[in-house]
Every structure is written in C-alpha cells, then in structure tokens.
Nucleic acid binder design. Structure first.
Lengths: 203, 203
DNA sequence: CTGAGTTGTTATCGAATGATTACTTGGAGA
DNA sequence: TCTCCAAGTAATCATTCGATAACAACTCAG
C-alpha cells in the first residue's frame, strides 16, 4: 500500500495520455507559436514531466505536427457537423462553426501559425496538406463555388489575424475594428466577441 | 596607412547602418519568424557583429518592432503610389502592389507573422497599430466601402497564408491551389507566381 | 595635427532548452 | 501471488542565445 502518489502523475494508458498532452500542447503552442514554446511548458500544462513528452512524441517537431494534424481534423469535423441544413445558410453556419473553435484553446492560433511554417521541411508538408484539405472540403463536400471558396478561406484567414492581433479588445472603441468584426461573418462575429481572448490574457 | 581592414565592417554612419540592418533583419525575421530568429543571424546577414546589432537597437524585441513598423510604412507607401488612376481599377492596382512587395525579401512574411504576436505586451500594440493603419488607409484614403475593405484585407491575409505555406510550389499540379491563386487577385496572381519563393528555398 | 566621440569588434557570461540516460513504480495476466 | 512490461520520473548534458563589458580604430572639428 502507501501508494506514495505524491510526485508522479496518475497512471493512464499511453493513448489517453497522448490525447491529454495534445490538448495541452495545442493551448501552449497556440499562445506562444511553435518556436516560442518549450517542451517543458507543454509538459507542465499536461501535468507530466518534460522527458515523458519528448519520449511519447519523439521530438518537438513531431509533437507539433501531431498538434496541427489534430487541429485540421477538428475543423473538418466541425464543418461536417454543420453541413446538413438549409443550403443558403450553409456559409453562415460554417463561418460560425469556425469561430466557435475559439472556445477550444489554441485551435485557431495553431492553424494560423501553421500557415507561416511552409518553409520548414518537416512541418511545411503537413501544414500544406491541412490547408488543402480544408479547401477541398469547402469546395467539394460543402459544394461552394470557386469564388465562394476563395472568399470563405480568405475570411477565415482574416479571423485568424483578428484573433492573433487580439483586436477584439478594441471592439467598440476603435471604429475600424468594429466595422470588420461586424462585417466579417454574419454569425461568426457574435461568437468571436464572446470567445476571443483579451490583450494580455495568457489564454 | 596599413588600414588593416580585415575583420571590421567598412565605416558607415549609424543611420545608414541601421537601415542596412533593418533590411537584412526583415529578410531573416521573414524567413524564420520572430522567435525563430537569432540576433546573430541578423548580424551576419547584415555583415556586422552580433553585439553591434543589439547595441544599435537595444534589444531583440525593439529591433523586431522597428522591422514591422518599417514594413507597414512600406505597404502604405506602395498603396499611396498606385492610388492615382482609374478608380474602378484601384482595387486591382492595390492588390498587385501588395503582391509586388514579395520582391522585397521578408516584407510579406513579416507582416503575416506580426498578426500572430498580438499577445506580446511589447510587440502587440505595434502590430495592432500597423494593421489598423492599413485598414484605415484602405477605407478612408482609398475610399473603399466597408464591404470592399473587409474583402481586400481578407484577400491580403489569404495571400500571406499562401506565401507562408509556400503553396505556389504546387501551382499547376494541385488543382485547388491553382484555383485559389487564379481567383485571388486578378493581377496579383501573376506577380505572386513570378515572385513567390519555392518550397525549401532559404528565401 | 590631435584628441575625443562614434563606429565597430572580440571575449565571455548566465540562463534556457531539447534531448538522453538510468532509474522507479503500478498493474494486468499467467 | 509473482513477474514483467508499460508508464512515468529525476538528474544531467551539450548547445544555443541574448546581453554585457572591455577594448580598438576611424574620422572630423578645432
């Protein structure tokens, strides 16, 4: 007995622990970018030791790859969920679904950051695959026109920028910000407003 | 005489050297992001020693701030340049002008990266100012409608993502990529195609 | 011509970080 | 019950990076 469970994390199957770490890593990578994040921060956020994170994923880059793969899958999954329904409101639903992912910490920032890492030989291909996957889904599965697809993707990138810049802190005080947020996606903006992190928040 | 000019960089007024370093720093920060860039890389790219870079700008963060301020000024300057002319083609000209900045190394990637740093207490405010500045210019100086402004900014963010992902390497082979590039900005895409860095290029 | 301020360097430090090694402990199956 | 694999940790290492300090040489005003 005694079960001196003072220091060590409660036992868990590796797959389950992996998922926990991926969730924590998404939040931390999202807050600090890829290069700006230490494996130790991820480990502490997940409640395990730093060497264990490295051992489970092999390397920091491989961990990050797992994180963005999971994030892109998550987006496709949300889009699929809101696909059924009135076709004329499909774009609004998908925009709101994307903005809704703000509630899952780091999800959108990680996506945004991945679009800047195309030059990395390891991460680049994964990021391109993820981006292309969303693009194809929007066009083929959701049935958007070429023009609609471009606009939808561009709108998503704009949301990423707004989130990354923490622009919502200025909502209401800065006219141009208010403008963009209201115009961005008809239904998305409400979600963005309620979910977006403020300036200086650790998030 | 003798002027043993073996190691030390040729003398230059500090202001001139500052500009040289800013240009080099834009390229390096653009290629590797803020956190991923060392002051030593910047120094070597500029042909001076690392401590001198630090001394000229005080700190790495201040150097980066000078870089993005310069980049945002550069964008405004280009937009101003193409402002005169037929109003119905103003949007096309400005889109092409933005894409044309691809020829100045690191300019667009630096802008893209700055939109992810809103959470930084030092850099965040500068990035927000720059973004808001462009926004206001597009709406007030260029006279775009609210809707046009949003679409223009969103298109710019999409270009940033395409560049960051090195998507152009797949142009012609990947159907969806071809689609977006052609649809993005009528005249911008030609410039993007000829100027965009390929996958794996140091750029 | 000279000397003082500016331009620039070399040497070096302390902290941080990703990774490796060797060790411990819990728990499921024979 | 016993044992062996999986889960997890502590200790530690080699690098890297931003910053500081001390020093050297060019140049221009008087």
């Amino acid at each position: 007995m005694t079960t001196q469970n003072v220091q060590t994390a409660p036992r868990m199957k590796a797959a389950e622990r992996r998922e926990l770490i991926l969730e924590a890593a998404t939040a931390v990578f999202g807050a600090n970018s890829y290069v700006g994040t230490t494996t130790d921060e991820v480990a502490r956020a997940a409640g395990v030791s730093q060497p264990y994170v490295v051992r489970l994923f092999g390397t920091k880059a491989k961990l990050y790859i797992a994180v963005i793969e999971r994030a892109y899958e998550r987006i496709i999954s949300e889009f699929s969920r809101v696909l059924p329904g009135p076709p004329d409101e499909r774009l609004k639903r998908m925009g709101a679904a994307y903005a809704g992912l703000l509630s899952e910490r780091g999800m959108l920032p990680v996506i945004a950051n991945s679009t800047a890492l195309g030059g990395d030989p390891e991460i680049g291909p994964v990021a391109r695959d993820g981006f292309n996957g969303i693009w194809r889904f929007v066009r083929d599965e959701a049935g958007f026109s070429e023009e609609e697809t471009r606009e939808f993707m561009a709108g998503g990138m704009l949301i990423n920028a707004i989130v990354g810049l923490r622009l919502v802190g200025a909502y209401g005080t800065e006219k141009s910000v208010t403008e963009v947020l209201d115009a961005c996606f008809p239904d998305a903006v409400a979600r963005v407003r309620e979910l977006m992190p403020q300036v200086g928040e650790p998030w």
